[in-house]
Design a protein around this nucleic acid. Structure first.
Length: 826
RNA sequence: GCGGCGGUGGUGGAACGGUAGACACGGAGGCCUCAAAAGCCUCUGUCCUUCGGGACGUGUGGGUUCGAAUCCCACCCGCCGUACCA
């Protein structure tokens, strides 16, 4: 007989075609349906070229969870779509002149092909692309809802501008002063732009982190990004200009220690303040230099403090002191009010500034037992249990916490301040001066001003244009026929908004659309949405820890306030997968030549081996380097399982593969191992996502099957069918094939197996015998034996006897069914 | 600086406070074969050994415990995030 070999190239397409033709993974919307549901979702891909190994890991991971959820009795929603608008496709269009849709659709076709070829169990009836009018119509609809509620607004502001991509960016898209896409340094520009009022939700976005099951480090990143600080706003008066300046401080208890006052170079009043003081030129020169300096240079941590006096003073509201005013670049316009009070004794930055400008440094807070905190070298910023105020007028001697409250209360009674909370989070700038994005559904009319496009007129379709080159304004502006439109309100001549939306807007609600993807009268049906949302398992890369995940949470909260959804959080549980690194341990990149193409792996070893390997590499949330020989090892394991399944099927055809009633000898060993594997895999998938150890358990079972070729056929059939059944979530084609060969049934229609408790315990176990904590022998002992018996057995063990040699036994520790530790005095 | 995560064989990694190194890779040897590929089997932390076994071993130093990779304290190193945030 010719040798039979495991041939994934034949097996895998066979099952893929069956699943496709039978629509196996489609699930109907039925809000009345009883029983548990599970919404398992991986972050949607941005289609660019072909999928890479990171995608393979992402979807193999999610698919294993989806399969496991189905077989444990859940109705599972597991959809797929494409985040199709975006800059790379547009930049390609600029280079080639080919419409971005062409490259995007080509890439989508490639992704779709590979998802099929990988055998991912997707409900294709819900597939969507964010660039399709049937989708972005509702993106625009949501924009209008936000606009109605005042959550979308337009204002002129100093915004981050990328000179290379020729567009503005959200704060979140600026990394170290550079554009996150192209790496060019961003500039500040005064422009009128669209914003979403995410800051209205800062507190809820912060608070509700406590209600969701997310990795702690992601929560921490979001907390830091929101950056809530408690303190007070305090108003200082500048009599010369008859103007009030408010600062935010987290340390109102140190107000008596203020000895100067500093404004950011961007502060709109600095020139007005300097005017007539003879300091105009110095101020102008300093401000100009500060504004042209790069963010890198200006923000350098070890940069010495610089600044110039404004020639004015403000009045400290608590003691009437006149504080000299400065402009200095260590004060940031974008945080707080763009002005700070300088308290050099208790703030290190102020300390450095005061030292450089020979300003007085006056301590006002001290630990209880010290009259004069040491400020000779640096500011005193430590907080101690019992610190109190000093040099603070009638507040001197008070406990620092009580003193702070008293000072704030005094300010409030005088109308010079109040307790306040400040956030680092800024509103979300969503307009982009680019072509390949969702048009903003707004029209500007000479008569009526800003007019929203009526819902009935949606979608505002992206017009066809010839030239995608950005020229400081959106390429859409050149589409004159499209831009000129009658005003929806008065019918007079009007012009469309030509900016498009940030693509993060598109991806902030796609998971809602999946629930009701073919609804063409509404973005979703509320009852249908309620039956699926929130997403139970959300899986993706940690690079979205802030942007996408924060924006999506904001969307859901805003939609909840409009009573359009019935949830407060989109993603109940989040899993962030680690990266697959190149074999050299570096991040994969074409310049390093260490990129692994999943297509090659799948062609050579099959989708199952590729999927299993990326899940077997190590803990899923950690980075791990690629290994070609590692994939081969996993392939060998699958081939061994297939071969033994094929052999048994050849011999006995499809038939029963249940656990034999009373196995003995080798058969019993095998049946026990199979039950152990069921138990182990179930715990590793269900409890924690420890897929590497789950796959290792199936490997152990298969190794055991090869070791016990003498076991009877019934036991072997059971063991092999069990291995196929529990490996199915990771290797669905092979699992289906082997299970089908042996039983004639479809493994995905079988309930998840449960371990037979009687088979999980053996009648005897190896008792570990220790002397003073060191293992000295192992002896066989009956499971469940009483402590006394175990102690006697251990005492009698040869290795133990050799190490007791006459020493006095002090104590004996017995851990039932495990070990005995004999403590002796030496 | 601050915050988070991590440090275990030649490699990726296992290990409810209870046999450290499961599983896999790599390596060594053997079987099968005319030969090779594939496959199968055995061994594989380090050192010592009279071949029975013994000593050492989870970044470093302490501690708690009958027993610590695991818990506590101090430190070293690496990675990620963030940073003149008042």
């Amino acid at each position: 007989m010719a040798e039979r070999r495991y041939t994934p190239a034949e097996i895998e397409p066979k099952w893929q075609q069956l699943w496709e033709s039978e629509h196996t993974w489609e699930v109907a919307n039925d809000p009345e349906h009883p029983g548990g549901t599970a919404y398992v979702l991986e972050m949607l891909p941005y289609p660019s070229g072909e999928p890479h190994v990171g995608h393979l890991k992402n979807y193999a991971l999610g698919d294993a969870i989806a399969h496991y959820s189905r077989r444990t009795g859940h109705r599972v929603l597991h959809p797929m779509g494409y985040d199709a608008f975006g800059l790379p496709a547009e930049n390609n269009a600029i280079k080639t002149g080919v419409h971005p849709r062409v490259a995007t659709d080509k890439s989508i076709a490639a992704y779709r092909h590979w998802f099929h070829r990988w055998g991912i169990s997707i409900d294709w009836s819900r597939e969507l692309g964010t660039h399709e009018p049937s989708y972005y119509r509702w993106t625009q609809w949501i924009f209008l809802k936000l606009y109605e509620r005042g959550l979308a607004y337009r204002k002129e502001a100093a915004v981050k501008w990328c000179p290379f991509d020729q567009t503005v960016l959200a704060n979140e898209q600026v990394i170290d002063g550079r554009c996150e896409r192209c790496g060019h340094e961003v500039e500040l520009r005064q422009l009128e732009q669209w914003f979403f009022r995410i800051t209205d939700y800062a507190d809820r976005l912060l608070r509700d982190l406590d209600t969701i099951d997310w990795p702690e480090h992601v929560k921490v990143m979001q907390r830091n990004w929101i950056g809530r600080s408690e303190g007070a706003e305090v108003t200082f008066r500048c009599d010369a200009l008859d103007t009030d300046y408010t600062v935010f401080t987290t340390r109102p208890d140190t107000l008596f220690g203020a000895t100067f006052f500093v404004m950011a170079p961007e502060h709109p009043d600095v020139f007005r303040l300097a005017d007539g003081t003879g300091r105009e030129d110095a101020v102008r020169e300093y401000v100009n230099r500060a504004l042209t300096e790069s963010a890198d240079t200006r923000g350098a941590a070890d940069k010495p403090k610089t600044g110039v006096p404004l020639g004015r003073t403000v009045t400290n509201p608590v003691n009437g002191e006149q504080l000299p005013m400065f402009v200095a670049d260590y004060v940031l316009m974008e945080y707080g009010t763009g002005a700070v009070m300088g308290v050099p004794a208790h703030d290190q930055r102020d300390y450095e500034f005061a030292t450089a400008f020979h300003l007085p440094i006056r301590p006002v807070v001290a630990p209880a037992d010290i009259d004069d905190p040491d400020i000779s070298e640096q500011a005193f910023t430590a907080h101690t249990e019992d610190e109190r105020l000093i040099n603070s007028g009638e507040f001197s001697g008070m406990d620092a916490v009580a003193g702070r409250d008293a000072i704030v209360a005094r300010l409030e009674s005088q109308g010079r301040g109040h307790a306040s909370v400040n956030y680092r989070l800024r509103d979300w700038l969503i307009s982009r001066q680019r072509y390949w994005g969702c048009p903003i559904p707004i029209v500007y009319c000479g008569e009526c001003g800003m007019v929203p496009v009526p819902e009935a007129d949606l979608p505002v379709r992206l017009p066809e244009i010839e030239d995608y080159q950005p020229r400081g304004k959106s390429p859409l502006a050149a589409a004159e026929e499209w831009v000129n439109t009658p005003c929806p309100r008065c019918g007079g001549p009007a012009r469309r908004e030509t900016d498009t939306m940030d693509t993060f807007v598109d991806s902030s609600w796609y998971y809602l659309r999946y629930c009701d993807a073919r609804n063409d009268t509404a973005p979703w049906d509320r009852a249908v949405l309620a039956s699926w949302m929130p997403v139970d398992r959300y899986i993706g890369g940690v690079e979205h820890a802030i942007l996408h995940l924060l924006y999506s949470r904001f969307f859901v909260k805003a939609l909840a306030d409009m009573e359009l959804v019935d949830i407060q959080e989109p993603f109940q549980a989040l899993f962030t997968q680690g990266m697959i690194l190149g074999a050299d341990g570096n991040k994969m990149s074409s310049s390093k030549g260490n990129v692994v193409a999943p297509s090659q792996i799948v062609e050579r070893f099959g989708a199952d081996a590729a999927r299993c390997y990326v899940l077997f590499m190590g803990p899923l949330d950690q980075d791990a380097p690629w290994s070609d020989t590692g994939v081969e090892g996993v392939y060998r394991f699958l081939a061994r399982l297939w071969r033994v399944g094929d052999e048994l099927a050849q011999a006995g055809g499809p038939g029963p593969a249940e656990q034999p009633a009373k196995p003995e000898g080798a058969a019993l060993e095998l049946v026990r191992k199979a039950n152990w594997a069921i138990d182990k895999v179930t715990g590793d998938i269900g409890g924690r996502y420890s897929f590497n150890t789950a796959i290792a358990a199936v490997m152990e079972l298969v190794n055991e099957i090869y070791r016990h070729t003498d076991a009877d056929v019934a036991a072997r059939r059971f063991a092999v069918a069990t291995a196929a059944s529990v490996v199915f979530p990771f290797a669905p084609h092979l699992g289906s094939e082997v299970y089908g060969l042996l039983t004639g049934r479809r493994v995905w229609e079988e309930p998840w197996p449960s371990a037979d408790p009687d088979m999980l315990v053996k009648p005897t176990f190896m008792l570990v015998c220790q002397v003073n904590g060191k293992v000295r022998d192992r002896v066989e002992a009956p499971t469940g034996a009483p402590r006394e018996q175990l102690e006697t057995l251990a005492m009698a063990a040869r290795g133990v006897q050799a190490h007791l040699n006459g020493h006095q036994v002090v104590k004996v520790i017995v851990v039932p069914d495990k070990l005995v530790n004999i403590v002796v005095r030496v």
